[in-house]
Design a protein around this nucleic acid. Sequence first.
DNA 1: GTTTAACCCTGCACGC
DNA 2: TGCGTGCAGGGTTAAA
Length: 280
Amino acid sequence: MELPEVEVMRRDLEKDVVGRRVKSVEVRPSKNAMRVIRRHGRRKEFSSRLEGRKVAKAERKGKYLLLTLDSGEVLVVHFGMSGQFIRANKRVALPPHTHVVITFQQGGDLRFVDPRTFGELFVSAADEIGKVKELQHIAIDPLEDTFTWQSFGDLLAQRAAKLKALLMDQKFVSGLGNIYSDEVLFAAGLRYDRTSDALSSQEVRRLYRAIQEIVQEAIRYRGTTLDDVAYVDLFGKPGEYQHELKVYGRRGLPCRRCRTPIDVVRISNRSSYFCPQCQS
DNA sequence: GTTTAACCCTGCACGC
DNA sequence: TGCGTGCAGGGTTAAA
């Protein structure tokens, strides 16, 4: 799950979960459920900090979701590759790989489901949240006002790394993963292996605009749902951006702009899709 | 400083 | 049909 999917989830939670009070929390008996709450030694140490608390705020930092409680504590959520939140109720059977079930006083529940268990949930004390390492190093968010093309250009000039790796680096710019970084590079007309400090100011501008456009478009389409581990929104509904993808997953298919077959390379064990004609 | 490989998991598509 | 292999949108770490 990348920025657009996390943001869609955040908005859904803001509408449907913020304001509800937690009645009970069940961390499922499986070993993997403990893996998901790996920072807490015991199930109870996790659940008791949520029980009786009201969800006050739903925020996002990069690919992390922060649910602030009326106690001031924060439920930090990272979805990893296959994590998801699903709203349901006790009459609906728990799907496989459900690790945590949060039941609300007003009825209904919120389930954290994650087959690959790269996702994580943990509760942080109010005064500790600033010290959480993973959150501290998260770079500027493309949706923030402070993300300007000038500041972005400075950052690019300070590094000499390949664009694909840099776009995926959460310490450089937050929220982009493998799908959207490929889409951004296509929209900018830049190859994955271009070096960041060797871009013209026009190219910097194109890259900057592409990031904003792709992220905003993907949110508007409510995220990308591929058939692998399918992302769905809070209510189980898939996104629509997969129909808009220009390069990701389209190996050998004609480029939507120039008809040249889309090519793919492997960079540090991840696929990068690009159009050899449109990107240079 | 930058890049690579390996690792953490499960499930699915694919080829033999 | 069954089985092994590779691959999947996350991130970290050590080593080159």
